[in-house]
Simulated scan of single mutants.
Amino acid sequence: MGPARQDTTTTNKPQAITDTGLRAERVSRTAGGSLIVDGITLAPRPGTVVGLLGPNGSGKSTLLRLLAGVLAPTAGVVTLDGRPLRDLGRREVARRTAVVEQQSDTQVDLTVRDVVRLGRVPHRRAWSPATAEDERAVDEALARTDLTNRADQPWHTLSGGERQRTHIARALAQSPRELLLDEPTNHLDIHHQLDLLHLVASLPLTTVVALHDLNLAAMFCDEVLILNNGRAHAYGTPTEVLTEKLIAEVYGVRAVVTREEGYPSVRFVRR
């Protein structure tokens, strides 16, 4: 299990404005005439894990794509060290920020090492061979994710948990400072969910992760941002934010929230 998180912020307390790291300032995104993300500000503290929580359709994945520069905001701005993403090249952003999607697959016959090597693409010129530095980064990423003994194994033979760890290894091979993950525990059993999030929480990176499971967020996130209908509903530590009242407001369900091992534990009540 992950370590208990220390309470450091207040629910709905405005975040400190900083020009360092990844930051979204009052970002909105409209698609098909609908407002998907509505005026959200997020400035994760360096080295922390921030969880994005909320019901389906609340804007979690869209906000992650805005942070990654995959989508451009309709209003507001996303910055890296004070520089708008729109002013930075895709390669420069990819050298700093790594993304792990919900599920990624390939029809190409690749080994685990081949997949992890893809993380070095932003650091290399087109058609140039891998350097010794590239191979060191790949080896370190494989070791960090406990995949060294799987390096030469075909990708398609891996389990779901091993595939997700491989994608995190690919992200680590980018040598990023920020890591963005969209529902990384989907389709994994409990053991692999805990194993994967323990790995994520142990990384020396600033991490933003979209999650459905409130208990996993409570265990592994330093802070959480609750989204509801595209808006920021609450922000703070899991202990401050994950209350019975908020769960009823946002999710429309009854829950009993207790505190165990330093973080809240949510038990849902049958109707």
Rank of each mutant, 00 (worst) to 15 (best):
R124T: 14
N186Q: 07
V115D: 07
R113G: 07
A126W: 14
V116P: 13
A218M: 13
L181G: 10
R90T: 07
R136F: 07
T111N: 13
V138P: 07
T185Y: 00
T97C: 14
L179A: 13
A151N: 11
V112Q: 12
V115W: 02
T207N: 08
T111R: 10
R163G: 02
I168H: 00
A137C: 13
A130M: 09
E135L: 11
A171G: 12
V115K: 02
A169K: 05
L196Y: 02
R95N: 07
G82E: 07
L211D: 03
R95P: 09
N149Q: 12
V93T: 13
P154S: 02
R125F: 10
R177W: 12
Q102G: 15
T145N: 00
D87R: 14
H191Q: 13
R163T: 04
L147T: 04
S128Q: 12
A201S: 13
E178H: 15
W155K: 06
D213T: 11
D114W: 08
E162T: 01
T111W: 02
L180T: 08
L147H: 04
A218C: 15
A151S: 14
Q107G: 14
T131S: 15
Q107A: 13
A201V: 01
P84Y: 08
R125M: 12
V209T: 01
N149M: 07
E101F: 13
R144D: 12
R120S: 10
I190T: 06
R165A: 01
G89I: 05
G161H: 01
A143P: 09
S104E: 15
L194N: 01
L211A: 09
T97F: 04
L188E: 00
D182Y: 04
L180R: 08
D152Q: 14
Q102M: 09
S175M: 12
H191D: 03
